[in-house]
Simulated assay, not measured.
Amino acid sequence: MPEGDTVWQTAGRLHAALAGRVLTRFDLRVPRYATVDLTGRTVLDVTPRGKHLLTRFEGDLTLHSHLRMDGSWKVYGTGQRWSGGPGHQIRAILGNPERTAVGYRLPVLELLRTTEEHRVVGHLGPDLLGPDWDPDTALANLLKDPARPLGEALLDQRNLAGIGNVYKSELCFLLRATPWLPIGQLPAERAEQLPALAKKLLEANRDRPVRTTTGRRGQDLFVYGRAPRPCLRCHTSIRVGDQGDGSRERPTYWCPACQSGPGPDSAHRTHRRPGN
Rank of each mutant, 00 (worst) to 15 (best):
L28E: 00
T10E: 12
E170D: 12
E152F: 13
T236S: 13
S169F: 13
L94K: 10
A227H: 02
T213S: 09
P135R: 02
V43C: 15
T114P: 05
V240M: 14
L54M: 13
P179H: 04
G215Y: 10
H271V: 09
R32K: 10
G77V: 03
P149K: 06
V7H: 09
D134N: 14
T252M: 08
E110R: 13
R216H: 13
E249H: 13
L155I: 11
T270S: 02
C255S: 03
T137P: 00
G263I: 00
P48S: 11
P107C: 00
R211N: 05
H118P: 02
R269M: 03
A198S: 12
G95A: 15
D265L: 12
L67C: 06
F26H: 14
Q219F: 07
L94R: 06
L18F: 05
L186M: 01
A153P: 01
L53M: 08
T115H: 08
R176G: 08
Y33K: 12
S247N: 14
W133L: 01
P195L: 00
L63D: 01
F26L: 10
G164K: 14
S237V: 00
D127F: 07
R250M: 07
H235I: 00
I93S: 11
Q185C: 05
C231Q: 09
R113C: 06
T42A: 12
G244A: 12
N96W: 07
P262R: 06
P187G: 11
R32L: 07
V22W: 14
P251K: 10
L53K: 10
G77A: 09
